[in-house]
């Protein structure tokens, strides 16, 4: 097997245990997926590619340049899914102006009270980045906690669409991506995590969380393989939103 992104973080014992315990088999992909893009907003990406140490001065949750390396992968997957009529579902955060509902988030971060806005137009950090802005037929789920399922209608939307699986992308691999994958797994949805479509603030967390998810909960695959899978699916399987009357900032292709 070709080397995986997590291999360099594993000890020899880890590799032996993993092989002996039988984890990490490749599961079936599912037949009716939705593409999920977790929290690819300005708070996690910054307004432009910046070295992460610079970037986190303003955007404390920024993943810096790694976010922007994933952007073309996300664009490709999003366009492909829209073209096939496969549901494209985004998540991003939502918060009261006074931040009261940040709740447990404020227990672990010293910079929780900061609420920077975009230099250009004052939009807040929860705005999904314009490069992958939702289209009129896409779905945006607003959440307050790591999992896209926690306190949101996501599960009911997947039910209504008749989805049996998720293709998961976005950020952070160790936080909201993993939490969403775990809840999807618990609900018996099949999960594919796009290795180069996910990013994190810390490289070790990114790799080891991909490793954990691939071992137990999901197929972690490179985007070329996911693209081939999506291309193999029939078009027009889903009753998507009509998009009538929905205002968007979707960039022209």
């Amino acid at each position: 097997m070709t080397e995986r992104i997590w291999d360099k973080f594993l000890t020899e014992r880890d590799k032996t245990v993993l092989a002996a315990a039988g984890f990490g088999a490749l599961a079936d992909w599912g037949k009716r997926p939705a593409l999920i893009i977790i929290d690819v907003n300005y708070a996690f990406c910054d307004e432009k590619p910046m070295p992460i140490l610079e970037s986190i001065k303003k955007w404390r949750t920024s993943c810096g340049e790694d976010a922007w390396e994933a952007m073309p992968v996300l664009q490709k997957l999003i366009w492909l899914c829209r073209d096939k009529g496969i549901p494209v579902i985004y998540t991003t955060g939502t918060r009261r102006a006074d931040n009261w509902d940040s709740g447990s988030w404020s227990w672990k971060s010293k910079r929780r009270a900061e609420a920077p806005v975009l230099d250009a137009d004052g939009r807040d950090g929860n705005t999904i980045v314009d490069e992958i802005a939702p289209g009129p037929q896409d779905i945006v789920v607003l959440k307050q906690k790591p999992s896209g399922f926690a306190g949101t209608p996501l599960a009911s939307y997947l039910q209504l669409l008749g989805c049996d699986s998720l293709i998961v992308t976005g950020t952070t691999t160790s936080g909201c991506v993993r939490a969403t994958v775990l809840d999807a797994f618990s609900l018996n949805f099949r999960c594919t995590v796009v290795e180069d479509g996910c990013f994190d603030r810390t490289q070790a967390s990114h790799a080891i969380n991909l490793f954990d998810m691939h071992a137990k909960y999901a197929n972690v695959r490179p985007s070329e393989e996911v693209v081939e899978y999506i291309k193999s699916l029939p078009s027009g399987m889903f009753e998507l939103p009509s998009g009538a009357g929905v205002q968007t900032r979707m960039a022209a292709e």
Partner: peptide, 9 residues
């Protein structure tokens, strides 16, 4: 229940 229903389609 929902997990079971999903598993069975």
């Amino acid at each position: 229940l929902i997990s079971h229903l999903n598993l069975l389609g």
